[in-house]
Structure formats: C-alpha cells, structure tokens
Design a protein around this nucleic acid. Sequence first.
DNA 1: GCCACATTTAATGTATACATTAGTGAGATG
DNA 2: CATCTCACTAATGTATACATTAAATGTGGC
Lengths: 225, 225
Amino acid sequence: MTSNPRKSQSSTLKAVDELRDLIFTGALRAGSDHLESELALALGMSRTPVREALLVLQGQGLVDVRPRKGARIKPISPTDMAEIYDVLTELESLAAANAARSAPKEADLATLSEAINDMDRALRANDLARWAEADEAFHCELVRLGGNSRISQIVAMMSDQVKRARLATLDMRPAPTRSNTDHRDVLDAIRKGDADQAQQIHHAHRTAAKEILIDLLETHHLNTL
Amino acid sequence: MTSNPRKSQSSTLKAVDELRDLIFTGALRAGSDHLESELALALGMSRTPVREALLVLQGQGLVDVRPRKGARIKPISPTDMAEIYDVLTELESLAAANAARSAPKEADLATLSEAINDMDRALRANDLARWAEADEAFHCELVRLGGNSRISQIVAMMSDQVKRARLATLDMRPAPTRSNTDHRDVLDAIRKGDADQAQQIHHAHRTAAKEILIDLLETHHLNTL
DNA sequence: GCCACATTTAATGTATACATTAGTGAGATG
DNA sequence: CATCTCACTAATGTATACATTAAATGTGGC
C-alpha cells in the first residue's frame, strides 16, 4: 500500500506542486519570464492546467501573470522582506499568545518540542538545510497551536514568498544558536500559560530575524532574490 | 472619453467581478452550490473563464470548489468571524502604528478625515448603508497609510470574507457612534505621531467590534451567514 | 426484501481548435 | 535619416470537443 496520493491528483494540482518546487529550488529563477506553452511542454501537459496553476500561484503571490510576456517569477526585494516579516511577526506572536491561552497538554506540545530538538541536532551536525526545515516545522506548528486557521494560511503564504530568499542566505547568516534559546523560551511560556510572555518573546525573535535578513540583503546588494 | 475600463477586461476578470458582486449581495446564497455550467450560462460565457474565476475566488476564500458538487459559496460562522476579526485587529493596528510613525502631512490624511466626516453625516441621516461604505473606506485608507502592501491585501481579503455578514447585521447593531469617536482618536494619534496610542486605540476599537458582532451572531443563532 | 455489483449519467478535467490582440518589424514617406 | 503605418506574428483568451470519473440508479442473486 505505498500508493502515491499525488497519482490521483488533477493535472492542475500537479502543476501547482511542481511549479512551486521549481520556484523554491530556483530552477525557475526569480524575475524570469515563462510562457504558458513553455511550461506546458516542460510539465508534459496542455496549456489549460498550466494556466489554472499560474492563476493559483498568482493568488499565492509567487508569480505575476502578464499577458503576452509570460508569467514572471516574483523576486523578493529588501522591502518585500520587511513587509512580509512584519506580517509574520505580528500574526505568529498572536498565535503564540493564543497557544499559551489554550492551555495545551504536554502531548500537544510534542511536535513543537521535537522540532526544537531537531534544530539542536541539526546545529550540532552543522546541517543548515535540516535546521531550516525544523525551524519551518516549529513556526508552522506554533501557529497551528494558536488555533486560527486563517493565521496559519496567511503565515504559510508569506513564508512561501520568502522561502527562496531564506534558503539562499542560509549560509551567510551567523549560526542561529540564539534562535533556539528563543524557541525554548516561547515553548516554556506556552507551557506556563503565560500568553503575554509568549507573545513578547516571539515578537522579539521574529523582529531580530527580520533585521539580520534585511541587513544581509542590503550589505550584499541582493535586491532581487 | 467615458470609456468603460471594464469593457476591455477579459471574461475571466469580468466573471470574478460579477461573481463577487453576486456573492456580496447574497444573490448567490451562502452555503449554496453552483455548477460551472450553470454559472457559465448565467454569465453568458463558456465554462473556461468561469472555472478560472472560481479558482481565483477560492484563493480569496470566498468559495470552495468541490468536484462534482459545484462551487459552494462559503458561509461565515461565528468562529470564522472571530478568526477574521483577530487577524484584522492585529494587522490594522500595526498599520495604524506604522502610519503614525510615517509622520504623514495633513494632506495625506485628507481621505481619512473625509471618511470620518462621511460617517458622521451618514449617521445623522440615519443612512447605515452609507455609513458602512465610509467605514470601509476609513479602514482601507488607514491600512494604506501603514505602507505595507501585503497588509492591505490581507485586510482586503479578510474584509471581503465577512462583508456579507457585516451587511446582514448592519441594522441589528447599536448605532455606531462610539465607533466614530474611536476613528477620530486614531486619526489624532496619527497626527501627533504617537504610534503606540494609535495602535492601542485601534486595537481596542476592533476588539470591541468583534465582540459586538459575535454576540449578535450567537444570540440570533446566525450560524451560517 | 436487501445487498453487491454493473451500468448509466452527469459533472468535472483536459486537450485542442479557434478568436483576439499586443508587440514587432519592414517598408513607405516626410 | 527618422518616423509613422500597417501587416504579420506569436502569444494569450475563449469556446468546444473529448476523456475521465464519482455518484446514482437499476438489476440480479441471495
């Protein structure tokens, strides 16, 4: 029973998935233009599902569909990064507060705790890619615990928009050891049910991350990642 | 030169506009299902642009496309309302703070000020529909002044999701006179450049609105607006 | 009379043909 | 030589034909 659930997906959904992958990995470079027919050929399907997929991706802020110029893979500027991190900061820390207020049982915090441990292990192994993965899992789970599905959705969308830029700058950043202390502190605050503290710590955590990233982009003149 | 810009729009965009109108006015009732072919017939176009429009509307959280059951107009429950207002509260008050920090000139605040006056006039004339319109203009402009385009986008999307429910409950609510004092206070705080105060007042303003609405929905058992 | 299964059907999913149109470049013209 | 026009091209936008498939319906066996 190793059936691949993707097998039964519609071409449109497959196109969305595959295009997202191509965008995240940089196979479709930021700022580049792509005709519908070109993408259809590459994905082995007709233009119809590709068009539909591009509409979806446009809704997710990943591409701009520009008639007769092709779909442009949206680049991320330092300004974009600042906008997105401001949204993430605000909504994630609200989620952290709500998570604390919801008085979760220890079992509910297992995933969060595991993500923190994963980050520790990844850091010790100097495996930044794996650290990034666990970091994303942490933030995703934290927001889920907040219990607001719209916040989860928005945070996922904003995270996707900066995913490429985050990966590209991963090895330019100082080792995120401080980051993990923050994560543990947030978890502790949630355990204690201290909503204000959870919110405050997470807010500071994200604000710091924002500043590091923006500085990085600006000093390296990375204006279109 | 009274050319209608809509005239040149694609069918897909026209379909998006028209379907949104039908949803907001309630012509397409919350919770109802609609086949692609039915909508295509109603809009006088083929299924292709209707399908594309439905994908866009699904991205905006206004419909759910469910294979073989038709597109369902998403209803709003009290829980949805709470989720959405929490997002609006958080992001709008951040925008208010940023607007205050941006030290806008008086001319930049003209639209905001005008919206407040409109609300006053509408209240005196007992014209709730016009008050609602001006209220929306106020919130929209406030967020625009915050200078974060993603916040504008998200706020617009969340507002759209509750638009029907807000209109439907308009004449059940107490006269929003307190609301307008809040608006003026927020504007004053922005004028003074007091970011914290702007944020705090607006936060309280939205939180109060949330509680009034949720109470209303629950006492009237309006579970699927 | 009820359940399992085949058959039908109605809706979506996809490909393709066709219509439309923005951009391009050649040629004429000042 | 610059520029304007017009036809052409290539891309999107739209309709339609066709493939697929989930649900509904009926049929036979038990």
